[in-house]
Amino acid sequence: MDLFGLVTITVLAVFLGFEVVSKVSSTLHTPLMSEANAIHGIILLGAIMVAGQADDPLILAVSLLAVVLATINIVGGFVVTDRMLVMFAAKPRRARKDDAS
């Protein structure tokens, strides 16, 4: 893709990023941070790309280290977010019902 297309996507993603989290309640700050952390673990894709093209042992070693680190980020990120949300799931729903009554 040309540079202008990439810059367009970047600018739109900035505005979208501002927008999607603008109404989050403070109780969900930590899970949201954890979710965002898991999502940037998609650097795993970049690590696989460079490791899959490496033809020098040293470059392959560095790339594989990146794959390990990125896997820890993405897998750990989604699993720990799920654990946080398990304890969140029930309580706030009841609180909302109380507000309505």
Binding site: M1, L6, F15, L16, G17, V21, A36, I42, G46
Partner: peptide, 25 residues
């Protein structure tokens, strides 16, 4: 650098939403 739109979008989303989240916290 890798010309990969998904890394660009995901990274920018986290950069932007993470900034707003930091300010909110």
């Amino acid at each position: 650098v890798l010309s990969n739109v998904l890394l660009l979008i995901a990274g920018t989303l986290v950069g932007a939403s993470g900034t707003i989240l930091t300010v909110s916290m």
